[in-house]
Structures are given as C-alpha cells and as structure tokens.
C-alpha cells in the first residue's frame, strides 16, 4: 500500500504515477489522503489498481477509468467516473451532477445520493445508487442499467434508447418516451446481480423497472412543425 498525501505532493505527480502502472507488475494498491475536494483525482487510470481516496473528492474523480477499482470514502463533485470504460468507481457519500456521464462500461456505485443528470448519455455503464437521484437521470442514454434504491427526480429516462432503469422508491415524473416495463425474469436477474456486485442490500422484488417506449426511433410527420 502506497500512501500519497495531496497536501504534500502534486496531483499531477499522482496521476502520472497511476498512468505509468498496469497493475500486473509493480505497485498495485494506493491510498490518497487529504483530497479536500481537489478535481481530477485518479483520472485516466489504465491498470488493475486499487485506489482508495480518503475524504471528499472534487470533479471528475475516476474519469475515463479502465480496469481500476477506485473508492472515495467521502462525497464527490460533478462528473464522477465520466466516460468510464471498465472497472469499478465507488463513492461512499453523495455524488454531484453527471455521475457516470457517457460511460461505456464498468460499474459506478454511489452509496448516498446522486444529483442531477446521473448517467446522462450513458453507453453501457452500470450505475447503482443507494439513495436518490436528481432530475433527468439517464437523459439520452443508449445502453446500460441504472439502479436507484431511493427516489428519482423529474423526467426520469427522458429520450432513452435501450436502458433498464430500476427504481425502488417514488418517481417524480417520467421523461419523454420513458414508461414502466414488466419486471420479467431476465430483468430481475440483472437487478439482483447488480445489487450483489455493488454490495448494496435491497430486495429486488420491491423495485419497478422503466425503459424506452421506442416511439422516438422513427421520424413522425405528425410531430413536424410545418
């Protein structure tokens, strides 16, 4: 375990060190202390590393992550795990806006609440939120899964393509073309597996699932303004 104190060493030096490792040989395990809300911590990691950030991180923590397992023990700022490719990024507190935005793979876990636009334009990532999500969750998402153990804000799943949105609590409103779906065996299996992977305790049977109405795939002349 290598400890890096961001009160004493430069963030760029930390990120350069992390970029130089593949996790197969050499150092593998890192602890970052005194993050104090700094931005861009552990961005662009491309190796099988275990990184724990002790405290609160700023914007874009774990962005573009590939392979690494990153944990923030406090809260995180906007753009948590933005464009994540693979690996796991976990926040034990709350996350700000755009969690997992455009993510292509991997798993993002927020044990507390995630704010607005969680999973915006997601393209394959799985996101599990222990608490609530804000407005416009998964807006324009293409594929992947979002699990919300609490409530969802306004316009859930607006203009989504192929997503499963599992919500246990209340949904304030559904976005355009988002509708409730039947929780079939296949979807229940996905949800059960995601809760298990995320290590979040919840009863999958208490969730509802929402998905695309698929009414936006084709141009409708009736909607055109002539």
């Amino acid at each position: 375990m290598i400890e890096i104190d961001l009160d004493k060493s430069e963030l760029r030096a930390l990120n350069a060190k992390l970029h130089s490792l593949d996790g197969k040989t050499g150092e593998k395990s890192f602890k970052v202390v005194n993050p104090n809300g700094k931005h861009n911590i552990a961005v662009g990691v491309d190796g099988e590393l275990d990184i724990t950030i002790e405290g609160h991180a700023g914007h874009y923590v774990g962005g573009m992550n590939k392979h690494a397992n990153i944990t923030v023990t406090g809260n995180s700022g906007a753009g948590l795990a933005e464009n994540i490719m693979s690996g796991v990024v976990r926040v034990k507190g709350n996350a700000s806006q755009y969690t997992g935005a455009t993510g292509r793979g991997g798993l993002v876990v927020v044990e507390g609440d995630a704010a607005a636009r969680c999973g915006i334009s997601m393209k394959g990532v799985d996101i599990v939120v222990g608490g609530n999500v804000g407005h416009m969750c998964a807006f324009l998402g293409q594929s992947g899964n979002v699990v919300v153990c609490g409530d969802a804000g306004d316009a859930l799943g607006d203009s989504i393509f192929e997503l499963n949105l599992f919500v246990q609590g209340n949904v304030k409103s559904l976005g355009t073309d988002c509708e409730e779906k039947e929780m079939d065996a296949e979807k229940l299996a996905i949800l059960t597996q995601l809760l298990d992977q995320a290590k979040i305790k919840a009863d999958p049977k208490k969730f509802k699932v929402y998905g695309p109405g698929r009414n936006l795939y084709n141009f409708k002349v009736d909607n055109a303004v002539l």
Binding site: N36, G37, K38, H56, G58, H59, N75, G77, G93, N94, S96, Q97, D113, A115, A116, G134, H135, G153
Partner: peptide, 22 residues
C-alpha cells in the same frame, strides 16, 4: 459552488449535505 468550500466548516462531517433542486 463546490463542496470543498463547505469542507472547511466545523462539524461538516455530521452535516446534511445535498444539491438544491432546480
């Protein structure tokens, strides 16, 4: 605007922290 400004306050570890709705 950002959490790190609030992180300087006494007792923040037990504060209720949230993002205001639009």
């Amino acid at each position: 605007s950002e959490f790190r400004a609030i992180a300087t306050l006494p007792g923040v570890e037990n504060a209720k922290i949230w993002e205001p709705e639009p």
